[in-house]
Amino acid sequence: MDGIEDPMIRLSGVSKTYADGTTAVHELDLEVRRGEMVTLVGPSGCGKSTTLKMINRLIEPTTGSIFIDGADVTDADPVKLRRGIGYVIQQVGLFPHQKILTNVMTVPLLYGESKSVARRRALELMELVGLEPDQHADRYPHQLSGGQRQRVGVARALAANPPVLLMDEPFGAVDPVVRGRLQEEFRRLQRDLGKTVVLVTHDIDEAVRMGDRVAVFAEGGRLAQYDVPAVVLGSPADDFVASFVGAARGLRRLAVTPIDPAHLEPLDGVRAGELGAAIDVGATLEDALALMMREDKPMVGVRRGAQFVGVLTPNGIHKALRASVNDA
């Protein structure tokens, strides 16, 4: 792993060994940049959730040091530490007998904010995560769908405006369609807010779609690979990683590789009828290939706003996939 200057989170030589001799995490060195989303992925029992819980000291490390924003938190007051870190779990953990607005207000009130300030903050956050306050503020958790409850959990975690957000299988309890929409919306939200996020998942597709970098854990709590999604998929570090990311890793790379104008061909000589629909330059290769197949065309036009910038062909897709690994 390359050195990172002034990371937001740094784990140095962190291990967790239980009394029966079981090693959950083995001598982990891991750094997370400010404003970065890192996903931890691996099979059950590989130590990814244990790692997450050691960051906010829900689980105490056996050895090693953990730094957040340059400060060693290993000996810090764990309650005070957790109040400065957002935490979202799969089960959400909402208070069932409190209304949604009250659930979101909980954290600001714990910080000593007045009820009026906490209420205003909660209403703002509900809108931010896509829950209309007029419709949802006075409802109870059991009256919401799984996806809506997960949004409330995210809003509550953001209520104290923490610089760091930890998420443990946050979208695992919702159906695939809602899950995909929540992933996209949270990724956009994270970029807009600039939060540093560590997200645990067992799903390699979620890991590579959500993460700026992906940490692949192997059994015994060993960090097998830590890199950008394109490299994890295109150049697995060992046989375990290759097996875990699967034989379809080439297709997965399409979803994490953006269209690059350098791989486009000029519009010169291309007849308008050959193009079909066009796609924005910010889309992924997966989006472009899907459009080609849907339109049954040998190429797709690429535009930046209203201006066409070139044509993407299957050969261009191949070049982009190769470059995504070589340039990372």
Results as ranks from 00 to 15, higher is better:
His263Thr: 02
Ala247Ser: 14
Leu182Ser: 03
Gly180Ser: 15
Gln148Trp: 13
Asp280Lys: 00
Arg139Val: 01
Pro141Tyr: 13
Gly47Asp: 08
Val38Ala: 11
Ala248His: 13
Met167Leu: 07
Phe308Pro: 14
Gly47Glu: 04
Leu11Met: 13
Ile100Cys: 06
Met210His: 01
Ile89Glu: 05
Gln307Ser: 12
Glu184Leu: 01
Val311Met: 02
Arg253Lys: 13
Ile68Arg: 11
Gly172Arg: 09
Lys297Ser: 09
Ala24Ile: 05
Tyr111Gln: 10
Glu295Asp: 15
Gln190Tyr: 00
Lys115Ile: 04
Val154Ile: 12
Pro236Asp: 00
Arg82Ser: 03
Val309Arg: 03
Asp77Leu: 04
Ala215His: 01
Arg252Gly: 14
Pro43Asn: 07
Arg188Ser: 09
Gly147Pro: 09
Val311His: 02
Ala306Asp: 11
Thr23Val: 14
Asp296Glu: 15
Asp227Trp: 02
Leu110Pro: 09
Ala283Gly: 05
Asp20Phe: 04
Ile55Cys: 10
Val25Glu: 01
Ile66Asp: 04
Lys115Asp: 06
Lys16Asn: 08
Glu5Arg: 15
Asp77Pro: 04
Gly305Pro: 02
Arg303Met: 10
Val92Thr: 15
Gly194Ala: 03
Arg304Glu: 14
Ile317Tyr: 04
Gly153Ser: 12
Arg57His: 10
Gly112Gln: 06
Ser49Thr: 11
Leu101Ala: 11
Asn56Ala: 10
Arg57Ile: 06
Glu132Cys: 13
Val281Gly: 02
Leu94Glu: 06
